Amino acid sequence: MKSKKLLSLLLALAMVMSMAACGAKTNEPPATSGTPSETGAPATEELNWPTKEITLIQPWSLGGGPDVITRQIASYSDKILGVPMIVENHTGGSGTIGMNDFLEAEDDGYTLFCCNGPLFSLTPSFIDVDYTIDDISPICGIRITEFVILSNASSKITNIQELKDYAAAGHTVKYATTGGPGNDSYTMISALFALLDIPCEAVPYDGGQEAINALVGGHVDIAIGSPPTYRDYVINGQLNCLGTFIPEGLDVEGIGHIASFKEQGIDVEFTGMDYLAVRSSVDPRIQEKLREFVLEVYADPEFQTFMAGMGMKAWDSDAAEILSMIDSQTEAMSQYIPLVQ
């Protein structure tokens, strides 16, 4: 019995000495528990995104400038990101329905939103909203919104003075708008008519293209639009450009220079914009990947040709520039809102 105990003790001692020798040869530290930073492992997990389709919520109607451009951007997703990007139109409420749906989605980077400045600089003055600018993070600009006031060529109204003369002759000017108060196009055209003391009647439509179609069809006297919706009609001689809210005027390929209302002595101006955004709580690395994706699209020659065909250029602004522009819009809108309230 004693010999067996002695043998067991010798074997245990041999094992301890062997393990010590092994540790000395490999110089491996003993295993410890703790956070990744304490053990020398990466502080963040490897980004595994995207792995499924991305949804881009479009709060404006089919066929308008933002819709057409975002669908073109989304068409590059499979090639660049390896997953499809699906554009969904959630219209109504001057964009607030789409905004609310966007904010209810998961903040995992798989939901994008086509946003504009007035959702923060204008809409809250007319509609009770449950969001603030802190809820979103701009990713990249899409376009500068270059609003132009247009008339049907058959009306013989080719400039602002002729529009004033038309109204002075006892006519109430019917004008097409996309939405009502809270929408930038409605506010700016309404403010213009208020400054000119023109009796008018707003006729709302669901989207910019529908408003232009109504003008072409002679259902209204005046409409407001951006180049993608009106350019071909002006080139074909069906519509006239009366002026733009862009203070320095506007040069549109195939049309030429469109004088601003400022240049015509009317104290009204507005520069709008559309941009892509995600919820502010989305992983910053995903936000950066999305921006890189958009910039790669903008650098593509075919996309540049597509934008030129609509008389526009992609607006590759960053978050700081977008937020600064929203601040400027908010200040400008404080002058125009009282004119339409």
Score class of each variant (00 low, 15 high):
residue 181 P to M: 11
residue 108 D to I: 01
residue 241 C to H: 00
residue 136 I to D: 06
residue 251 D to R: 09
residue 164 K to H: 08
residue 82 G to C: 03
residue 218 G to Q: 04
residue 242 L to Q: 00
residue 52 K to A: 05
residue 25 K to P: 01
residue 233 Y to T: 04
residue 183 N to W: 15
residue 303 F to L: 10
residue 51 T to Y: 09
residue 260 S to W: 03
residue 113 F to W: 04
residue 116 N to A: 04
residue 162 E to G: 07
residue 303 F to A: 11
residue 95 G to N: 00
residue 250 L to P: 04
residue 62 L to K: 15
residue 181 P to Y: 08
residue 121 S to M: 08
residue 312 M to L: 14
residue 113 F to R: 06
residue 198 I to G: 12
residue 279 R to Y: 03
residue 37 S to C: 08
residue 43 A to D: 09
residue 22 C to N: 09
residue 123 T to N: 06
residue 23 G to N: 13
residue 96 T to V: 12
residue 206 D to T: 10
residue 3 S to K: 13
residue 142 I to R: 02
residue 59 P to I: 03
residue 101 D to N: 10
residue 31 A to F: 14
residue 280 S to G: 04
residue 130 D to V: 05
residue 293 F to N: 09
residue 322 I to W: 01
residue 59 P to S: 02
residue 46 E to T: 13
residue 141 G to P: 00
residue 83 V to T: 06
residue 240 N to Q: 14
residue 75 S to A: 12
residue 309 G to H: 09
residue 49 W to M: 00
residue 64 G to H: 13
residue 165 D to R: 01
residue 239 L to R: 05
residue 279 R to P: 06
residue 109 G to D: 13
residue 8 S to R: 10
residue 340 V to I: 15
residue 128 D to E: 09
residue 139 I to Q: 00
residue 17 M to Y: 11
residue 194 A to Y: 06
residue 163 L to T: 02
residue 25 K to C: 10
residue 117 G to V: 02
residue 40 G to P: 12
residue 310 M to I: 08
residue 7 L to N: 04
residue 181 P to A: 14
residue 14 A to T: 10
residue 215 L to H: 07
residue 174 K to T: 01
residue 149 I to M: 13
residue 228 P to S: 07
residue 18 S to D: 06
residue 24 A to M: 13
residue 28 E to I: 11
residue 288 E to Y: 08
residue 249 G to T: 02
residue 319 A to H: 00
residue 259 A to N: 12
residue 19 M to H: 09
residue 205 Y to V: 01
residue 83 V to P: 07
residue 129 V to N: 06
residue 337 I to M: 07
residue 139 I to N: 06
residue 224 I to K: 13
residue 307 M to T: 10
residue 79 K to N: 02
residue 203 V to D: 11
residue 211 A to H: 15
residue 71 R to E: 15
residue 226 S to L: 07
residue 279 R to V: 11
residue 310 M to N: 11
residue 215 L to V: 13
residue 333 M to N: 03
residue 95 G to A: 00
residue 319 A to P: 04
residue 104 E to A: 13
residue 341 Q to I: 10
residue 69 I to A: 07
residue 117 G to F: 03
residue 323 L to E: 05
residue 122 L to R: 05
residue 146 E to L: 08
residue 100 N to K: 08
residue 118 P to M: 00
residue 278 V to P: 00
residue 286 I to E: 03
residue 2 K to L: 12
residue 69 I to T: 05
residue 206 D to L: 06
residue 256 G to L: 05
residue 41 A to L: 14
residue 77 S to C: 04
residue 77 S to P: 00
residue 246 I to D: 04
residue 325 M to Q: 11
residue 60 W to K: 13
residue 143 R to Y: 14
residue 254 G to H: 11
residue 142 I to Q: 03
residue 243 G to R: 05
residue 330 T to R: 12
residue 202 A to K: 07
residue 147 F to H: 06
residue 9 L to H: 12
residue 78 D to C: 04
residue 32 T to D: 10
residue 328 S to Q: 15
residue 38 E to S: 03
